[in-house]
């Protein structure tokens, strides 16, 4: 397995009136070429900020405090995306790395028709295509994401939330990128359309081997597409591993809680429980484990909330599962009885 992106000790800070907030804290992880990776985690845990640093869309008062984002080009050369000038990075945007932002509404220009978005994007990054070719491609992509052709002639406000979301997905595929990052790509869609979109993305993945990163809250639906999953909590990646391992044999108390909270149609409602408490205030972090105030191991006295917290994630043997919790054996043992 060869990585396409290596994140090394990446930290992102936001300056606020009440102090500096570290939204992403010392994240190290590899994203492998040709894989589909999911990043899950509570609202505000730093998912969007993390991927924004790969996409270099962090704006003041935010800044990348430290770390590297190493991109492996197809020809084997590597480059630290954070060290590139804006102009040099632009040659990667859309053609190598592209994104579907959270809340598609925000990205579409309300004064432009949808087809003009396709034309503008292509012209700005790849002038080789003719107008005709771009529009043909746009039609083909719209059909792929189940949009009627009238959509190309519409303005964004004339489309429903889910339709806009699909427009953005089609747009992101226009220049055949190597890496597609999707922030909450299906949350605005009904389940049948979600399956449909995921099916399309999966097919595109199979055909082109494109690497994909999904950020999402829809833990249940992500399970049907991703190979690997990263769990984020309060700015840190607390667990990273293969889907089956993280879902069925989680190694961090937070992942276990998250997976147990997934609502379903069939189980007993009372069996589904929200994780008690709130995520910590990032401006006022207590020493030790950030999840401790909500952790069942702490509550049961198995962990004191300090010593269980590891400096950085450890690997659990050779199955490529990593965790930030020193009591992972205990978590795994309990997870088998869930």
């Amino acid at each position: 397995m060869e990585p396409i992106i290596e994140l090394k000790n990446l930290s992102v800070d936001f300056r606020t009136n009440s102090g500096t907030l570290r939204a992403v804290d010392n994240v190290t992880m590899d994203i492998y070429r040709g894989e589909i990776v999911g990043i899950i985690g509570e609202s505000g845990s730093g998912k969007t900020t993390l991927i924004s640093s790969i996409l270099r869309t962090i704006r003041a008062p935010g800044r990348i405090a430290e770390g590297e984002v190493i991109y492996h080009c197809k020809d084997g050369t590597t480059v630290d995306l954070l060290k590139l000038s804006e102009k040099d990075y632009n040659s990667y945007r859309w053609t190598e790395i592209t994104t579907v932002f959270q809340a598609a509404q925000n990205v579409l220009n309300p004064t432009l028709r949808i087809k003009e978005h396709f034309l503008e994007t292509a012209m700005a990054h790849n002038s080789k295509l003719t107008k005709r070719e771009i529009l043909d491609k746009a039609k083909e992509l719209c059909a792929k994401v189940r949009l009627e052709e009238r959509v190309l002639d519409s303005y964004p406000h004339q489309l429903s939330g889910g339709m806009k979301q699909r427009v953005i997905i089609a747009l992101s595929l226009l220049l055949e990128p190597e890496l597609l990052i999707l922030d909450e790509p299906t949350t605005a869609l009904d389940v049948i359309t979600q399956w449909y979109i995921l099916d399309i993305l999966r097919k595109i993945h199979e055909e082109s081997g494109i690497t994909m990163v999904f950020c999402t809250h829809d833990v249940a639906i992500i399970g049907s597409v991703v190979d690997r999953i990263a769990v984020m909590y309060a700015g840190q990646i607390v667990e990273y591993g293969k889907l089956e391992d993280v879902f069925l044999r989680p190694a961090h108390p937070y992942s276990r809680g998250l997976i147990r909270a997934v609502p379903s149609l069939r189980d007993d409602i009372s069996k589904r429980a929200a994780i008690p408490g709130y995520p910590p205030n990032l401006l006022d972090l207590a020493p030790g484990c950030r999840f401790a105030p909500r952790c069942f191991l702490k509550e049961q006295g198995i962990c004191d909330g300090i010593t269980g917290n590891l400096e950085k994630m450890v690997s659990l043997g050779d199955n490529q599962q990593y965790t930030l919790c020193g009591h992972w054996k205990e978590v795994k043992r309990l997870a088998t009885t869930d």
Binding site: W195, A220, L248, S264
Partner: peptide, 23 residues
């Protein structure tokens, strides 16, 4: 069909799901 499409959080069920929907 909509009800049948509701995902279960179980990786063992990840099959060619969309094709099995009653549609």
């Amino acid at each position: 069909a909509l009800i049948s499409a509701v995902p279960e959080a179980d990786p063992k069920r990840r099959t060619e799901f969309a094709r099995q929907l009653p549609l």
